[in-house]
Design a protein around this nucleic acid. Structure first.
Lengths: 370, 370
DNA sequence: CTGAAAGCGCTTACAG
DNA sequence: CTGAAAGCGCTTACAG
């Protein structure tokens, strides 16, 4: 009865139960046909010997490890943390383990992460690709026949499941709302890392904007398109000085860009941001500059972070269901792992605009209403 | 040259290179002696066949998977997110994968998580035990000979590496600082889930407090000890009404408890909290109640969250190096995995008190100084 | 329903 | 330095 250091094997259980290893394996592994009385005999022997299946040996044969891999930008970013929580919750209820890797939005790191997870033989992968245009490594992964689900970003070249939001629509609605409130000079702060993508988007005319598939763009570029569409459809001109590029995915960059923005001669009366990092950075700059919200500037952030309800005034935000997005992505991935064979499915999670005290009509508009 | 769906095996590489499988394996696996020219021949064949080592087969033999498991309360909690980031960063540089599970501070969930990670055959485990007194499942794990590192909480019964902070000391210093500023009525809001532990700690006299090993307590109880010590050493009486028990690890519970606290007749002039969840909950309640900080109440939070520098006034905090704690825990674990054989090491990470505008002297004290 | 035997893709003594 | 062979702990046709 003394528990051996080396756990018992199927063979030992079989001997204890007086059956063949094949039969013991069937009873233990819960497959094939076994007479009930035999199964019980085996299970009793297993219990006696404290049998624990060796998952490695099993996985080598079945080719499945009951684990999934996640490659996101940074687990410390609350948006990804929320997604990850959703993924882990779904995985757990299905008995799957979750392996996590951060890309820091760096392509080479992402490639390496995928390789590491691949070496860990995960059954499926959830990735928010750092560069949706460079997904050869993900194509290779898919070449193995194992499923892949994209999250937060989709790809034009990759035919797989994806969970995204319509960020362009969300920003378009927010900006339009600001127009309603009388704002004529609305600024936007976004990462917009790719200057090329930025130039491309800015160069589009109305028809170009209409026809653009925003889901193939990087998140910040897609959201900028919403900003441009709002202007175009409202017949407002776009002042390039109000389109602010942080250039990298960091709060410091957003702060710097925002500081410059509010220093220009024809200052904006309203500001929208494209995600939680930009929101935090921009807000810090406004706070340091002593900008009075909403009197001097109406402000709409992205992502419903805790702090947006702790500062004064409360910050209006575009809420994005990160947790549910994670759940959805995991659910879709597990369906594929379990054998679902359908054309790629793209889920667009719903965002919602939560208007709070950081947004107010312009003085002029307020008077008009009165 | 067409890439086969099934990756090449050692046997195929060996045939291609014209050597035995043993030799091919040695060259591929980078162990044993192989003549340089032979090695090259094998590696060239491997490249040609696009050989990828089957980690599962390798792991089954070596007994190692190059992966570690992490069981924390909740990855969505910024404290754990910071820890996890530290762990993943260290793991990556060593070529290890990280498997993550949340316990939600629930013991049964933790047990299940350990079992799942165990089935995934991780080489080591980092756990912040939900109930430091109930660690039989962790003892079982250690019984396998694989290493375990505790984080944020240690255990009296478990002889393993651990990374903790001296929360008692941190709170003691903070409370003492409040005394210096003239505060006589200092309150504390903590989770203090275990009523039994709370009663025990509250019942201690000076000697009992002196001799208590706070590292065997739950974090919030340990921090309460710091509060009690500060009072005892300053010869201040403890008003039980100022020791506030949220009872569960949730912001809502902290808010509720705080709301009651500030409603009592003899209200506190200062408040400290025991971790980031309690801090957020307490701050929300104060904000809703319209408490003016620091005029009506000096406030010291735990964990240097982003938002503590966004609200007005800035919130003083006890900073806890979550990221570095994660790094340290991972480093220690990997050392054990690599064979280090030393007595258990307990690292006490340094906290720092960051005083900001949320803390001020009492009116009386301010006058005295003037 | 059960058993004997082969096999998954590696690593590892053991000889030479 | 290299090779023939056994073995890790399972699962899986194939017979019966």
């Amino acid at each position: 009865m003394n528990r051996p250091l080396r756990p018992a094997t199927v063979i030992e259980v079989a001997q204890e139960a007086g059956v063949s290893t094949a039969t013991a394996a069937r009873a233990l592994g819960n497959y094939g046909r076994v007479r009930d009385s035999t199964r019980e005999k085996v299970l009793r022997a297993a219990e006696k010997l404290n049998y624990q299946a060796n998952g490695l040996a099993r996985s080598m044969i079945t080719g499945r490890t009951k684990s999934i891999g996640v490659v996101c930008g940074d687990v410390h970013n609350p948006f990804f943390a929320g997604i990850l929580r959703g993924i882990t919750d779904v995985a757990r209820t299905h008995g799957y383990s979750v392996l996590i890797a951060n890309s820091d939005e760096d392509w080479a790191t992402e490639v390496e992460s995928v390789r590491t997870l691949s070496a860990s033989a995960v059954d499926g992968l959830i990735v928010s690709p750092a560069e949706p245009k460079h997904v050869e490594h993900l194509e290779n992964w898919s070449g193995t026949g194992k499923p892949l689900t994209l999250i937060d970003r989709s790809s034009a070249t990759l035919q797989t499941d994806a969970v995204v939001i319509d960020g362009a629509r969300a920003i378009q609605d927010a900006v339009t709302r600001l127009f309603e409130l009388g704002h004529e000079r609305v600024a936007i702060v976004g990462e917009l890392r790719s200057a090329q993508e930025l130039d491309h988007v800015l160069s589009l005319n109305r028809r170009g904007l209409d026809n653009l598939d925003v889901f193939t763009l990087s998140p910040s570029a897609a959201r900028l398109v919403g900003y441009l569409r709002a202007h175009t459809y409202a017949d407002k001109e776009i002042d390039p000085a109000l389109v602010v590029r942080a250039g990298e995915y960091a709060t410091a960059a957003a702060s710097l860009a925002t500081r410059e923005l509010i220093g220009i001669a024809a200052a904006p009366t309203a500001l929208v941001t494209t995600d939680n990092v930009m929101t935090l950075g921009a807000y810090r700059a406004l706070r340091e500059a002593g900008t009075i919200i909403p009197d001097q500037l109406s402000f709409i952030g992205f992502d419903n972070q805790d702090w947006t309800l702790l500062v004064s005034p409360d910050i209006s935000v575009i809420d994005q269901p990160d947790y549910d997005m994670g759940r959805t992505a995991a659910t879709m991935l597990l369906e594929r792992i379990e054998g679902l064979n359908e054309p790629p499915r793209v889920v667009r999670a719903a965002t919602s605009y939560l208007e709070r005290a950081s947004v107010a009509p312009t003085t002029k508009e307020a008077k008009r209403k009165a």
